[in-house]
């Protein structure tokens, strides 16, 4: 099994006026391709920092982080952005669709950023229908969609460039239980059928049953 993500003795220290804050304290971990990982822990435990680092939005103060075998500590901002674009998909608690764009345009956006033409609507349509968005909603703006629909569009957007790794930050946090369960089923389907590596941060212990492995983090340390 190939390793998708590897942390080698990683520390992250934020320097604030009130003193240094240790967000990650000598963390080492390794996640294989195709694993479904749940990261759990109390607020301020460092799980967001862990996820941000996996998402190449943050770089370590100490230690090394490898995403798809690339050491992110040695990469420029542009290189990290290209890495995100090609290998990572983000799913947020707040859905975070671009309000100016319609559902299908939101999905098409990463494709265009990746140098694709803006007429590849077939792929967008297929992915949107695969995540359960019906044809007549394609031209709707995010504000005209329900929370569940928005999250489905967001998942389609995360999938469009066919990334190996999906990063989900409380993906069901803003949804009711029933819709949340549907989204979780969709994620585990993606892992099973398409072999995506999925890393999910959550507060909700009931969601851990979807995961192959749970990483508990407290005070910047893995328990």
């Amino acid at each position: 099994m190939k390793t998708a993500i590897r942390f080698k003795d990683v520390s992250k220290i934020y320097s604030l006026k009130s003193g240094d804050v240790i967000a990650l304290d000598h963390v080492s971990l390794s996640i294989d391709e195709g694993e479904f990982i749940a990261i759990m822990g109390p607020s301020g435990s460092g799980k967001s920092t862990l996820l941000n680092m996996m998402g190449c939005l943050d770089t370590p103060t100490d230690g090394e982080v490898f995403i798809s075998d690339q050491n992110i500590g040695e990469m420029s901002d542009d290189q990290l952005t290209i890495l995100r674009r090609r290998h990572l998909g983000f799913i947020f608690q707040q859905f975070n669709l671009i309000p100016l764009l319609s559902a299908i345009e939101n999905v098409r956006l990463p494709l265009i950023l990746n140098g694709g033409s803006d007429v590849c609507t077939d792929r967008c349509r297929n992915i949107l229908s695969a995540v359960g968005i019906s044809e007549e909603r394609l031209e709707h703006k995010p504000s005209e969609l329900s929370g569940g629909q928005q999250q489905r569009v967001a998942i389609a957007r995360a999938l469009i460039n066919n990334p190996e790794i999906l990063l989900a930050d409380e993906p069901t946090g803003n949804l009711d239980t029933k819709t949340g369960a549907q989204i979780m089923d969709l994620l585990s389907h993606l892992r099973k059928e398409e072999g995506k590596t999925i890393i999910m941060v959550t507060h909700d212990p009931t969601l851990s049953r979807y995961a192959d492995r749970v990483i508990n983090i407290v005070d910047g340390r893995i328990q």
């Binding site: 542009d78 952005t81 950023l113």
Partner: peptide
């Protein structure tokens, strides 16, 4: 959001 899904500076 744009930065996280891969927009360059």
């Amino acid at each position: 959001v744009l930065r996280s899904i891969g927009c360059l500076r």
